[in-house]
Design a binder for these strands. Structure first.
Length: 224
DNA sequence: TCATTAAATTGTT
DNA sequence: AACAATTTAATGA
C-alpha cells in the first residue's frame, strides 16, 4: 500500500522537494473520485484546493447564458490546475467537469501557500508550469486566427500530451469525437474526417472512444 | 460463456 | 441536423 508521502512524491511538482517539504505537503494532500459526466466544481464555487488529475480526464469549460457549451482546455493524468484561483483566493471562473471516471488529487490552500513561501523547488516548478501554460495559450491565438479545422484537431490532441503539463499521460486518450470537437471548436463531423486523415498519415490510431498518438511531435506542429 | 438488448459513439449525407 | 452503422456495456439464461 502506497503511503500518502509516496503519492505526493509521485507528483511532478514534488520530485525536487526535500523530505521535510514532502512530509508537510502530505498533510494537506487528499484524493477524491468523480464519475464520468459529473461536475468537479461550478463557476463561482470557492474551492480552496490546487487540483491534479491522477487518472481519468477532465475539461475546463463554461456554458454561456444562451446555453452554448465552450471548452477551454482538457487535462489528463499528471496535470495540475486551479492555481490561479488558489493564489488569488478567488472563486472559480470556470466549470470543471469529469469527462471520464476520474481520480483527483487535491492540495489545500494552506499547504499550497506554505510551499510557495518556503520551498524554492516548488516555486521553480510553479514558474515553469505557468510559463508552459502561457505558451500553450499563446498557441491558441495562432490557432484561432490562422489554422484550418483539421490543424486545430491535431493541435488540440497534442495539448493532452504536453510532457511537462501532463507528465503521466500514456500514449493514448479516451475521449469521444464530440468532446474533442468542443475542445477544438469544430463540429463532430470535422473531427471525424480529420482523425481519419491523421490516421491515414500514420500520426494517430483511432478506435471506439479511444485515440492512440503515434507521432506527438508531428501533431504539435501540424499544419496542412 | 453466450445471446439479446439498450445505450453510446462513429460514419455518412 | 438527421439517420444508419458499429461498438460497447449490461442483463439474464
Amino acid at each position: 500500500m502506497a503511503s500518502k508521502a509516496d503519492l505526493v512524491r509521485a507528483q511532478s511538482w514534488a520530485c525536487d522537494l526535500s523530505d521535510a517539504e514532502v512530509e508537510r505537503a502530505s498533510r494537506g494532500f487528499s484524493e477524491r473520485s468523480f464519475a464520468a459526466g459529473t461536475y468537479i466544481c461550478h463557476r463561482g464555487d470557492r474551492l480552496d484546493h490546487w487540483t491534479g488529475v491522477i487518472s481519468g480526464l477532465i475539461k475546463i469549460s463554461v456554458i454561456s447564458r444562451a446555453g452554448k457549451a465552450m471548452t477551454f482546455a482538457g487535462a489528463g493524468a499528471g496535470s495540475w490546475f486551479g492555481e490561479g484561483s488558489v493564489l488569488k483566493g478567488e472563486p472559480r471562473k470556470y466549470d470543471v467537469v469529469a469527462i471520464r471516471d476520474t481520480r483527483l488529487a487535491m492540495l489545500n490552500k494552506t499547504t499550497f501557500d506554505w510551499l510557495s513561501e518556503n520551498s524554492l523547488a516548488f516555486n521553480r516548478f510553479l514558474v515553469r508550469h505557468l510559463n508552459e501554460r502561457m505558451g500553450q495559450f499563446i498557441g491558441t491565438i495562432e490557432f484561432d486566427r490562422i489554422l484550418k479545422p483539421q490543424d486545430r484537431v491535431a493541435r488540440s490532441l497534442s495539448w493532452f500530451f504536453n510532457p511537462f503539463l501532463s507528465p503521466d499521460m500514456a500514449g493514448h486518450l479516451e475521449i469521444t469525437q464530440e468532446e474533442l470537437g468542443l475542445l477544438a471548436g469544430v463540429s463532430r463531423q470535422i473531427v471525424n474526417k480529420s482523425l481519419q486523415a491523421l490516421q491515414a498519415q500514420g500520426m494517430v490510431e483511432v478506435s471506439h472512444g479511444r485515440i492512440v498518438v503515434l507521432d506527438l511531435e508531428g501533431l504539435t506542429r501540424y499544419e496542412s
